[in-house]
């Protein structure tokens, strides 16, 4: 097929040349724990800061190169350099299903992206620990160890499951769509309130439970 001849990055050359993603690295970013909350110090080159501001103003014309130039001139070089400090930052996995520690978007209080961490192992041990802890906390879901029963009624299904600690009951709307296959073996279920439950491994499930969920897969 034609597709086979196209090099990995696509026929048009590397896309990374077109737009620059702000990657956070140990050289330019320092994560500090404040009683378990993360704060961040970022060192930015002055030119980047100016470009950033310009980008903000013309968010929807990013593709319009001439537009960017225009504001660049208008805004002029930014006055302040030096580290930028955020007293609280939030982490967000870009690919939560596939990569748990790579491509982590770092957001400020207003949900604006400060930068992206390519891999948290780029950072020193203690920062890694801090980031990892925060991620685990944020993405915590209730694991399902066994399924007691699933009853379908009037378009909803009523689940009784066993998690690590005990029995749990929850209701799922639109069952087929609320069950997501994260991988062939890993299943996530979202209930009516937005709580997420996860079967870490279908294979590890006992046959009785397996049979109860098989119908929906």
């Amino acid at each position: 097929m034609i597709m086979d001849n196209i090099p990995e990055k696509g026929a048009g050359g590397a896309l990374t040349d077109v737009v620059k993603i702000e990657y956070l690295k140990p050289e330019n970013a320092e994560f500090i724990s404040r009683n378990g909350f993360i704060s961040l110090k970022v060192l930015k080159p002055a030119a980047d800061q100016a470009a950033d501001q310009a980008e903000d103003q013309t968010a929807d014309q990013a593709e319009d190169q001439t537009a960017d130039q225009a504001t660049d001139q208008a805004a002029g070089p930014a006055a302040e350099t030096g580290p930028e400090e955020y007293d609280r930052v939030f982490l967000h996995r870009c690919f939560p299903n596939e990569l748990t520690e790579e491509y982590i978007s770092v957001l400020d209080r207003d949900n604006n992206e400060i930068g992206v961490i390519r891999n948290i192992t780029d950072f020193p041990e203690d920062a890694q620990e801090l980031l990892r802890k925060e991620l685990v906390r944020k993405y915590h879901v209730t694991p399902i160890k066994a399924i007691r029963s699933v009853n379908e009624k009037y378009g909803y299904s009523y689940w009784k499951v066993k998690d690590g600690a005990g029995d749990r009951e929850f209701t799922v709307r639109d069952t087929y769509r609320s069950i997501t296959k994260i991988s062939e073996d890993r299943i996530s279920v979202t209930d009516v309130d937005g709580n997420r439950f996860e079967i870490p491994s279908l294979k590890a499930l006992d046959p009785g439970s397996r049979k109860k969920i098989d119908m929906f897969l």
């Binding site: 378990g36 609280r88 906390r137 944020k138 993405y139 915590h140 209730t142």
Partner: peptide, 18 residues
């Protein structure tokens, strides 16, 4: 707000706490 759950946070004597 987290992905599936949430925290009640407060600043206690100036330090943030869950």
């Amino acid at each position: 707000e987290l992905i599936s759950c949430g925290y009640l946070c407060a600043k206690i004597h100036g330090t943030p706490e869950r």
